[in-house]
């Protein structure tokens, strides 16, 4: 089937099998391998993308569902001035280890800050609780989100 949607700020039109999972569409057809897959069943958050600004699990979405939506993957998060403040904070705070959860974790944090601009540490932990990380113990990720908040406030 033919689908039209906005991907990382660009309108695109594709002909795809309607039942292909969004994670496969991104990785295999569009070469956007920043979106990871780690469980395939909604238990880990590695495949998180933003759809109309909200975090979604791309392993539990089919391509047909993208019709008319605005999709942001990790590759499209940085702006013209470079890294998104959350990405920059992840680098500076040491929130990245193996990096496989990182894209999903960053996007989950972006969604969180979008609707809760000044979260407590507990709220950050809650906001990231759908994204598993096996390296960091989460603390520096929480630090990074706090850092992003403080930098945004200037």
């Amino acid at each position: 089937m033919k689908i039209n949607f906005i991907l990382n700020g660009r309108e695109i039109e594709l002909t795809v099998p309607s039942d292909i999972r969004v994670v496969d569409l991104l990785r295999e057809e569009l070469d956007l391998t920043g979106t990871k897959e780690s469980c395939g069943s909604g238990e880990c958050g590695a495949c998180t993308i933003l759809v109309d600004g909200q975090s979604r699990l791309s392993c539990l979405m089919l391509a047909a569902q993208l019709q008319g939506r605005e999709v942001t993957t990790i590759e499209g998060l940085a702006g013209n001035e470079g890294r998104h403040p959350v990405q920059e904070a992840f680098v500076q705070a040491g929130a990245v280890q193996c990096g496989f959860c990182t894209p999903g974790m960053v996007l989950a944090a972006v969604d969180l800050l979008g609707h809760r601009p000044d979260p407590s540490r507990a709220e950050i932990r809650e906001g990231l609780s759908g994204n598993l990380c096996r390296c960091t113990g989460y603390q520096k990720i929480v630090d990074a989100v706090e850092m992003a908040v403080h930098r945004e406030k200037g």
């Binding site: 990790i74 590759e75 998060l77 680098v91 040491g94």
Partner: peptide
């Protein structure tokens, strides 16, 4: 002294290619 990891840059942007990312 703290030296932010260089690999974090490409990992945070989604550019870093893991073995799973080879097609």
């Amino acid at each position: 002294v703290v030296f932010p990891r260089t690999d974090a840059l490409t990992k945070v942007s989604g550019e870093e290619k893991f073995a799973a990312d080879y097609y």
